[in-house]
């Protein structure tokens, strides 16, 4: 039976969940994963994975520089800026 560690997942996904949310999430993930568990009935031994339904290879562009957008346009949506930099609160490692 799958038993996802909701605390750990929330931390990986950078989602602050309240205790009530965590509880609800646990139950819902459990129900969904129980349903998903039916995949185990299907034998996929030797079956290649499909990451794109329409197979394509070698899509590349030539190495040509194109004009950038001005810093003003790139910073227009910034929640906080200082000069032409994006500003973020104190970085702490976890």
């Amino acid at each position: 039976m799958p038993d996802p560690n909701v605390e750990h997942l929330a931390r990986l996904a950078r989602l602050d969940l309240s205790e009530a949310e965590k509880e609800r999430m646990r139950a819902q993930l459990d129900a969904i994963l129980t349903y998903i568990d039916k995949l185990r009935q299907l034998d996929t031994e030797g079956v290649e994975p499909t990451s794109h339904a329409i197979p394509m290879v070698n899509v590349m562009r030539e190495d040509e520089a194109r004009p950038c957008l001005p810093a003003g346009a790139m910073l227009a949506n910034a929640p906080e800026r200082e000069g032409d930099f994006f500003r973020v609160p104190k970085i702490i490692e976890e």
Partner: peptide
Amino acid sequence: GVKYGHRAAGGKDLIQMYGRTRA
């Protein structure tokens, strides 16, 4: 909350800001 979109107020460090913004 770094480049665009909503940023939660009051996060005193980056981890708090990330977690609250996304919550």
